[in-house]
Nucleic acid binder design. Sequence first.
DNA 1: GCTTGCATGTAACCGGTTACATGATTGT
DNA 2: ACAATCATGTAACCGGTTACATGCAAGC
Lengths: 178, 178
Amino acid sequence: MDTKTLCLGALALQEASGYEIKKLFESTYAHFQGVGFGSIYPALAQLSEQGYVRFRVEPQARRPSKKVFSITDAGLAHFKTILSTATPAEHFRSDFLFLLIYAHLLSTQELERILDRQTEALEAEIAHLLEQRDDPRLTVGMRFTLDYGITAKQARADFIRSHRDALLAHHAKEPTCE
Amino acid sequence: MDTKTLCLGALALQEASGYEIKKLFESTYAHFQGVGFGSIYPALAQLSEQGYVRFRVEPQARRPSKKVFSITDAGLAHFKTILSTATPAEHFRSDFLFLLIYAHLLSTQELERILDRQTEALEAEIAHLLEQRDDPRLTVGMRFTLDYGITAKQARADFIRSHRDALLAHHAKEPTCE
DNA sequence: GCTTGCATGTAACCGGTTACATGATTGT
DNA sequence: ACAATCATGTAACCGGTTACATGCAAGC
């Protein structure tokens, strides 16, 4: 999904400023989508030109004033067509797996560190998702995405843990080609 | 990982042409890395300039001749430093999960189709990985990456299947905002 | 005094994807 | 005839990341 669609989606839930949209992508959407300010602001400007969103400038006490965007009827209609015609793809990129293919080029210590770091990283991500799960404002769909993420990450963490020792033992036996 | 490193990795396993490297990325590496010709050929040219790979032109009967690349000592050393210093990250992007957040904007039929398509897609990917698993030439590391992928995808497919009916029932009850 | 948070934006850069160009052979 | 496989490459394009620019307020 491109940034414009992502922003449209955020505004379909509630009106928000660019800054607030970014925060949404850092919390609820963080584990399956990501965008930076450098994409959000231009996207919002374009959506505004196209008439899919409108905005009002809201001054704030002891804060810089913000541009609060909200979706228009045309924007919502457009968003729905995107949803209906989209082919929902999933992409997974892993440098961790790439490294493991070349385990024989690493020392046993390095391999052990990589394995343990990855498990820790996954557990940390799971903990983060678990925290969000308690929020009573979550919709059914949001809770589904969180649980989907938790399940997938847990499966991977468990897999590494259950293969760790065998992998390490096998690696120690083989002559490391360094 | 950038394309250059990926190519270096492919050549660390065996010598190959650009075309053959592409095939490797379409089979063994497909589920966690991906590259196209448009990246591979320029990457190989750069690696050659840097002295990390060398190549010979191999003419073939009733086939266009190919450039067979192989890694140099400098290339292998460089590859090892990359492996040792790399922070192995994993990235997951899902348009499927994005769609699910907006399930209330879809009809029950559309939701059902999305859910079932995703399950089928995952099962197909699992079947593909399972096929590769039989190859006796696989290294321990490669088998690990395949099993990691299978486990993760299976967990997701199972999750969708076990939540499908509840999600659909809940959706049918709610007034669809279309 | 320094960092963090709130708040918006631009510009350069980088890298990957897509399309195009070429060309022989094999299978439908 | 037409599509697919083998085989290499270039060029345009597109979009996201990073860095930069600005500025105030609150907390450490």
